[in-house]
Write a protein that binds this DNA or RNA. Structure first.
Lengths: 402, 402
DNA sequence: CTGAAAGCGCTTACAG
DNA sequence: CTGAAAGCGCTTACAG
């Protein structure tokens, strides 16, 4: 009896050209052809019809156990693998999804997108799906390549990350009834799986206010992004709740980039040198702000505390390590993938998920300077650890998903 | 006359279910069906055979200009898009490549791989190829999914990044005659496109030695990697050339990670407190080393200079910004993609490319402390710029590719 | 429970 | 220069 996991055998010799007639030889008592084995050969060898092999392949309950086992054995013996082009051409599904990103330079090198992509790929792999990578460059959209993805049968669905209200082409998917889900973004009433930016902003501002900061700035980005607007809203509300009136001069656009974050921090500090804390809408802008503050002679966190959003892997290795709102981007990617498949199968017709965040307290935040000075005399100094420890705050892991 | 770039028209109404008989109506004088248009309908409308449409589609020179134009117009009018599953099933190519990465956690969030992936995707898009993402997890290899990529006709070729001599499964591609190219790695005699790590190491060590450093450490990684071995070789040779004997105690494995880099720096500095410069085999380890040095009370670069390899985007935004060997990873990905296509088409049967590097001088390097002290008195201080400037050294852009 | 046959939408010799 | 026909390798009603 053969072991359970018989590996497919490779017919290594290919003396015949691709167009030569299929030459079959008998070796080890098994029929082996020099070309790829197809379903017809399996059928012949197992003495059943091609239809039966197909049904076995697709685990149809209509096939008797005996027949199924016999066919299965033949499949293993011959090392048969169904041609997925033929499967998809005849069948309903391509078993592929596309990830569509904005037209940023070297977009796939961005750690934010990388987390989402990793989450999607891992989950897709487990579901038997392949993932292709696409970027929405202007010419791409003009040529309607995003719709072509479906029309030419490349994919069953698309996962979009990094888009906002301004990306009007997103509506094309809805018009074509093409399954599409936004990951970590909301646009109109489209399907989405997002991190809870409101909750994240609350967690960040609770920490900042608790540390005694009263002059708190916001480096925002892309007012076209619904999640970014939510952060701005919570920022205004939480300060108001603490008796601090909203001041537009304390907010600046950082364009989601490190350079933009540095530039925004510079404008803010020049306008309001009394700022003692800055909340940034992502880690890159937060790190850019730190960079500016340090090169302008300020100490982070003693002079100014910084809080970001994302919790990218290298944010823990910055100096100082970054206090930030952890966004479950990897999980959002995976969940979007799963829901998208259910959507493709018609099991659900609406995707709307909201994943909880938590704050990761690291070195870039401290007491407001005025409190810090008071506490200084009463406190002992401890050496900083080599590897930055992180403290998790406000985790809502009981799953308050919408 | 219709404009040149007529967009395909969508039959927006789908009152008929998917399985309803194909309903054709006439609107605007054009035949429009509620289902996807296929090649047969184009042929009927253009009053030619299906074969002719196919030949027009594939720009065969055997079709007369008049016929070609007429068919082309019908294609535009009907908004016909060939089903690529059918094209690939009948034809020779899938028009897809796979990117295969090692089984690291969240591998796609890694900026190093991200640069390579971006380079591949951009070039593949221009070549009309799609790119799918795969990860070589243990079970994946055990199930021979990497070979299945070809056997089940998912792809025409595979681009591998991040592997080394220990990844024995790479040989499977050669046995199956499956086109595969290694990006930024060499293994045995397999096809590859690499950055010139020898040149990079020379550029880094030239700079370090010129700054007067004599006690120079190396944080290496993966001796199974041929490129990493090359850096170690050049390190030993350049020091020897400068009259500094090789000392194993000055080298430590950093496992290619930031944590590993920090740990390696700690071991090195405890063993040899006199070290004034460290060369790390990648940026992550370099940034980890900086992190350790700073938290242990040392100043980078005044006490210890650090040089990395990669030039990742965020390395320019570290504090201090990182002096590093720029690896043309984006370009390597693109070139590998291009060569792989030539290999698939049988135009070449061997890929071996070597791309030049250059050093980017930033803030993490300075004169050796002893020289620095001497120079101190004679030098004026300048304030550091907000955005770190970079100085490019040793660029060999005249293309000395092997 | 299984088989014969039509069909998915293309490409590619082969004829003319 | 163009067409009729076979074929790529599957799936899916439809019969029995």
């Amino acid at each position: 009896m053969l072991p359970d996991q018989t590996l497919p055998r490779e017919a290594a010799d290919s003396r015949n050209g691709a167009d030569a007639p299929r030459a079959s030889t008998t070796r080890n008592g098994l029929k082996i052809t020099t070309d790829r084995v197809n379903i017809r050969e399996v059928a012949e060898q197992a003495k059943v019809s091609v239809a039966t092999v197909s049904l076995v392949l697709n685990k149809s309950p209509r096939i008797s156990r005996a027949t199924s086992l016999r066919v299965q054995k033949t499949i293993n013996d011959l090392g048969y693998q169904p041609n997925r082009l033929a499967q998809s051409l005849s069948g309903r599904y391509t078993y592929s999804f596309a990830i569509l990103l904005p037209a940023l330079r070297h977009a796939f090198a961005d750690a934010y997108f990388g987390e989402i992509i990793s989450g999607i790929c891992d989950r897709a792999g487990k579901m038997g799906y392949k993932v292709i990578l696409e970027q929405a460059k202007p010419q791409y959209i003009k040529d309607r390549k995003h719709v072509e993805l479906f029309e030419r049968r490349f994919v069953d669905g698309v996962l979009c990350a990094g888009f906002n209200d301004k990306h009007r082409f997103l509506a094309d998917f809805g018009e074509c009834k093409c399954p599409m889900v936004l990951v970590d973004n909301k646009v109109a009433s489209m399907d989405h799986v997002v991190c809870d930016y409101r909750l994240g902003a609350e967690q960040a501002l609770n920490a900042i206010l608790q540390l005694g900061h009263r002059s708190v700035a916001l480096i925002y980005a892309a007012p076209e992004s619904q999640t970014a607007r939510q952060v701005a809203e919570v920022y205004a509300r939480k300060l108001a709740d603490a008796g601090i009136p909203f001041d537009k001069a304390l907010t600046e656009d950082g364009c989601f980039t490190d350079i933009g974050g540095a530039a925004a921090a510079e404008k803010l500090m020049k306008r309001r040198p009394d700022i003692t804390a800055i909340l940034a809408n992502n880690d890159k802008m937060a790190l850019g702000a730190i960079r500016y503050l340090q090169t302008s002679g300020r100490n982070v966190p003693k002079d100014v505390s910084i809080v970001g959003f994302d919790d990218l892997q290298h944010s823990a290795f910055a100096n100082p390590s970054l206090t930030t709102v952890h966004l479950p981007l990897y999980e959002a990617g995976g969940l979007a993938c799963e829901r998208l498949l259910e959507r493709v199968h018609g099991k659900i017709d609406r995707i709307s998920e909201n994943l909880p965040t938590h704050l990761v307290l690291r070195e870039s935040t401290s007491l407001a300077p005025i409190l810090s000075a008071a506490a200084e005399s009463a406190r002992q100094r401890e050496p900083a650890p080599a590897t930055p420890g992180s403290q998790r705050v406000g985790g809502h892991d009981d799953g308050n998903r919408g």
